[in-house]
Amino acid sequence: MKIIVLLKRVPDTEAKILINQEGTGIREDGVKFVINPHDEYGIEEGLKLREKLADGSKVTVVCAGPEEATEAIRTALAMGADDAVHVCDPKLADPNPFTVSEVLAKAIQAEGFDVIFCGKQAIDDDLAQVQSILAEKLDIPQVNNATAFEMAADCRSAKLSRRIEGGDEKIETSMPAIISCDKGLNEPRYASLPGIMKAKKKEIRKKSLADLGIAEVPGTGRSRVLKWLPLPKGGECRIVAAEETVDAVRELARLLREEAKVI
């Protein structure tokens, strides 16, 4: 099988995110970038599937992102992916989901695919759109927020669970399909030292838009950002204190009822 795993480079979850001076985006200086944490579940699921099949199946990372995304791609290769396609083009600065999906569709079609794994959303724009738009462009089914995945023996269908409000939805899908992965699906492995050494020799095929046969940046002109806004400043925290805890608690309950009006 040809297993595709998608990857995006995003700021670390622990990073403090500030608006840049021009007000056009975020300040990137001092921000650590990592593999989108949800994409790690996709990479792990791809690797697990390859190990289970043990038939020479390959896991190929596909990433559309800036030059700097190479580091995240190497990490995925160190986790165990076989090779990678990195679509890297100056025309792709700050692309929208329609642009990315079209570009990824072209790159994936050029590679061939039997199944595609990715994260449920990227933790930067939090749009959670690319996988579903990509599924439409590739004309394949999608399963979002997967927490369980079981490929049928003939690899023509799969059973999944996906997380919804208040429970899990059981899904059956034909293959090929795109599966977006949620926490709980697996425990992503760490890159081992030998893995890191091996990753240095693995192939990353760099592609420009022209290499993919794309002349004009697709999908543009759909929206414009009016402004970036910081969070409203939280009020001062009112610390309720008293000699006896019970009195502090009583005062807190009173405030919640009379001032905050939530009881």
């Binding site: 089914p141 939805e169 059981k170 899904i171 059956e172 899908t173 034909s174 399909a177």
Partner: peptide, 8 residues
Amino acid sequence: RAMATEIV
């Protein structure tokens, strides 16, 4: 091609 079968 992909269909929910039940909700747990």
